[in-house]
């Protein structure tokens, strides 16, 4: 036990100074969602498989749809990335920053060709 103590005394601290220092995240870390709107066809598969209701598709017609993303509900499980047949939605290894306003986070990922703005 004494040896462990002396080892620890002369080794560097493990602490990560998180908000003030850098955080190293591995390559495959499932962080913030990245979206490529051009690839999205509005098929809704990601919405069907999302276990946390984090995605919502509002569809008027085949061409006219909105895809909403709610980061506060997201479980960062990666299911949408796996499900999407065209690779439109994926995780990056960026840290998701904390916030005090979960409602203000909702992101409109994609609107259809007719730019209807129904949802505020």
């Amino acid at each position: 036990m004494l040896r462990a103590l002396i080892d620890a005394l002369f080794s560097k601290a493990d602490t990560v100074q998180y908000p003030y220092g850098p955080v190293s995240l591995p390559e495959g870390f499932r962080g913030a969602i990245e979206f490529i709107p051009e690839r999205c066809t509005g098929c809704g598969l990601c919405v069907r498989d999302c276990p946390a209701n984090g995605l919502e598709l509002i569809r008027e017609s085949r061409e006219d749809f909105q895809l909403w993303y709610y980061p506060a509900r997201c479980a960062y499980c990666g299911q949408c990335q796996l499900t999407c047949p065209r690779g439109a939605i994926s995780h990056t290894n960026d840290m998701v920053l904390p916030t005090t306003d979960p409602e203000g986070l909702a992101v409109l990922l994609k609107t259809g060709h007719k730019n209807s703005n129904k949802k505020q």
């Binding site: 103590l5 620890a8 005394l9 080794s11 601290a13 493990d14 602490t15 100074q17």
Partner: peptide, 9 residues
Amino acid sequence: LARFQRRVG
């Protein structure tokens, strides 16, 4: 104590 526990303190 923090140094013994590999912390910054």
